[in-house]
């Protein structure tokens, strides 16, 4: 009997920066290859010529550079149109917070071209932004630490009067510092302002154990949720090792989150579990986390499920996963001829 031929699928993925603060792209690509559902052609979409995923030719077939998010939606659409003419892309999976706005904006146009995405709506994307997170939590009945958005360093004392010390000073896009004194808070303000601009978010400090949940919503319900605790954390606060947990409270939280918000796409809930067991949502990342490959190890391949959903297939919610499954990240030196680097730098394609 002849084996059924696998369907050819061309999937484009961003976030190939598998560095010390890694993007999720390479992990997403590994997950897609592991699914063995399709005859895959993986297209990498990169911003910089030294993103390691560009040179991982055993899992990424070709890579194109795309314009930075700051170039806007027209430039992105134009570049994707050019790439699509050559590659006939079926699905794009964007993996950076900063690029999602543009991809959501051009989602309908991509669909007209035959390119599928599976992303949250603009309203969902903005509602869970850290600037709006407290109101978001209040609206949907989630525990979220109190916060205050500030535009000037003079506003720190009034925030500290409300929350007390320690408090958390957070950048608009990334990074957070726990400040124990006014001086530390001021220093963090300057540093984060210089790096990410204004406003700065000052947040109530919640002590407990940090846990994370990678989840996938289909627009109505939660298809998959895998809770993980970081076992080894880099100086950038990134997980270098982690383990899946048995925690029905976190699964229920992810389910409630998907249902209440109608979440469509991948996401990561960053949660602080207080000593008395209360799960505070610290952040909602509107895309898969860099540790997403652990969901494959745990038995719920979230990236492959997202592709199916993007292609209009229905996916039944997963019910089981392996508890105690670990990931341990490592670094690996790729040896690359300068011609390849030159190819990416000069022509934006390899």
């Amino acid at each position: 009997m002849k084996a059924k031929q696998k369907e050819k699928r061309v999937i484009a993925v961003t976030g190939l920066n598998a560095i010390d603060s890694p993007g999720p792209g390479v992990a997403v690509i590994r997950a897609l290859h592991d699914s063995e559902e399709w005859d895959l052609r993986i297209i990498g979409l990169s911003y910089e010529a030294l993103e390691p995923g560009i040179y991982m030719n055993d899992i990424v077939h070709t890579t194109y550079q795309i314009p930075y998010p700051s170039a806007g939606t027209s430039a992105l659409l134009q570049r994707l149109t050019e790439i699509h003419a050559e590659e006939n892309i079926d699905v794009i999976i964007p993996n950076f917070d900063a690029e999602l706005f543009n991809f959501i904006k051009i989602g309908d146009k991509l669909k007209e071209m035959g390119i599928h995405t599976f992303l949250p709506t603009l309203e969902q994307f903005e509602a869970r932004d850290k600037l709006n997170l407290f109101a978001f939590g209040k609206k949907h009945g989630f525990l979220v630490p109190k916060d205050k958005t500030i535009f000037s360093i003079e506003e720190i004392p009034s925030a500290s009067a409300e929350f007390g010390y320690p408090l958390v000073v957070k950048g608009k896009y990334y990074e957070a510092t726990v400040a124990y004194t006014l001086e530390q808070a001021q220093k963090a303000f300057h540093k984060l302002q210089a790096k990410w601009g204004l406003p700065i978010i000052v947040q109530e400090f919640v002590s407990g154990t940090e846990v994370n949940v990678a989840a996938l919503g289909d627009g109505e319900q939660c298809i998959s949720a895998i809770p993980m605790r970081k076992l080894y954390i880099t100086d950038k606060g990134k997980a270098w090792a982690g383990i899946t947990l048995e925690d029905p409270t976190l699964i229920d939280l992810a389910k409630k989150f998907c249902k209440e918000t109608g979440w469509r796409g991948g996401m990561e809930l960053e949660i602080m579990r207080t000593l008395d067991g209360k799960p505070y949502i610290m952040e909602v990342n509107p895309r898969f986390p860099a540790w997403i490959y652990l969901t494959v190890g745990a038995g719920q391949n979230q990236p492959a499920s997202l592709v199916k959903l993007a292609l209009g297939e229905s996916v039944s919610p997963f019910t089981d996963y392996h508890v105690g499954k670990m990931f341990i990240r490592y670094s690996w030196d790729l040896i690359v001829d300068v011609e390849k680097f030159q190819q990416v730098s000069a022509f934006g394609k390899i």
Binding site: T209, V211, R229, L231, G242, I243, L245, E246, D247, R273, V323, G324
Partner: peptide
Amino acid sequence: SESGFVFNPTNG
């Protein structure tokens, strides 16, 4: 486990 390893799956 028999080797004396203990794992709490609730908190890792």
